[in-house]
């Protein structure tokens, strides 16, 4: 049954990678990458149960933390063109949205 869940997760991973590959805009690709990360977290947890090695859960927690940070960093980079300085974020003029 753990194997069935792992197979379902792998199928979902394949579909998500297809979306990241096809995605017409860059945001579709970021969405695909983010979802791949979340699925990888879950797959790590299930694999830890499958092989009875609960150490995988620690890796999964750290990966979940890194996943959301990397998504936010990528999005910020695409919006502002740099990762920015937290000091001048409040009053710096925001660049206009480009078409």
């Amino acid at each position: 049954m753990f194997a069935a869940a792992a197979i379902a997760l792998l199928v979902a991973l394949g579909l998500t990678v297809a979306r990241a590959w096809l995605g017409p805009t860059v945001f579709d690709r970021v969405l695909g990458a983010n979802t791949v990360g979340t699925l990888a977290v879950c797959l790590m947890a299930v694999y830890g149960f499958l092989t009875e090695r609960p150490e995988f859960l620690d890796v999964a927690i750290v990966y979940a933390l890194l996943n959301v940070l990397s998504t936010l960093a990528i999005l910020k980079f695409f919006r502002f063109g740099s990762l920015g300085d937290p000091e001048d974020e409040e009053d710096a003029p925001r660049p206009e949205a480009r078409p």
């Binding site: 379902a8 997760l9 199928v11 979902a12 991973l13 394949g14 579909l15 998500t16 297809a18 979306r19 096809l22 969405l31 695909g32 979802t35 699925l39 879950c42």
Partner: peptide, 9 residues
Amino acid sequence: TVVGAFGLV
């Protein structure tokens, strides 16, 4: 999960 990934495509 599989339904969501299918919807993603």
